[in-house]
């Protein structure tokens, strides 16, 4: 049990310290501000990223790692999402070159699909032949190579059109190219 005198000294000291801090708050924040902000930023990000990783680990541990091993379905999902991104790009961008790039994205999604199915057929060939199905796992890569060839030809011709268009109209925005529109 502190005496009354001691209590008084403590209160005065606390008030003095807090007053000093308050009166020099701006200077202090100028001194420690950027660094403190950086430290706080780092701590928050570490907590967020670590928590995210821990959450993923927790889910995988709980459901069993085997549940998350990618099969054909996961490849189809990636392929479909790439396809959708490409379609959104084609429909929403104004720059015709970026539209061409979105078309390349779509073609690549199809290639991924074909190769994934080819691998699936290759691994299950015996079972599928037993079911009296005609299986040719080489059709996937061959088709993919032809798609790449056609994409290269399409890109060459399309970019030639873009160049001649830019020479005549000084624009690459598709909604300003409306000569054939009525």
């Amino acid at each position: 049990m502190p005496s009354r005198y001691e209590l008084l000294v403590r209160v005065i000291l606390w008030v003095a310290v807090l007053g000093l801090l308050a009166s020099n708050a701006r200077k202090l924040s100028e001194f420690a501000g950027p660094r403190l902000r950086k430290v706080a930023f780092a701590v928050v990000w570490t907590v967020v990223v670590g928590g995210f990783g821990y959450g993923i680990w927790w889910v995988i541990e709980r459901m069993g790692p085997k549940q998350f091993e990618p099969t054909l379905v996961q490849f189809l999902m990636v392929s479909f999402l790439l396809f959708i991104i490409g379609v959104a790009g084609v429909l929403s961008r104004r720059n015709i070159i970026i539209i061409f790039m979105s078309i390349e994205l779509i073609l690549n999604a199809v290639n991924l699909n074909l190769i994934a199915f080819s691998r699936y057929l290759q691994l299950n060939q015996a079972a599928l032949v037993d079911m009296k199905l005609i299986v040719n796992p080489l059709a996937g890569p061959v088709f993919t190579i032809f798609i790449i060839v056609v994409a290269a030809a399409e890109a060459a011709v399309g970019l030639g059109i873009v160049i001649s268009l830019f020479r005549n109209r000084e624009t690459v925005a598709i909604d300003e190219i409306d000569l054939l529109k009525w």
Binding site: P70, L81, L82, I85, G89, M101, L123
Partner: peptide, 27 residues
Amino acid sequence: MFQLHGWEAVLFYVLAIMALFMGVFVV
């Protein structure tokens, strides 16, 4: 059946997420 195991599975997820994010950035 066709299923990737171990490191191949991890690699698949990393590559797939990278490809999708880069695709979004393309657009």
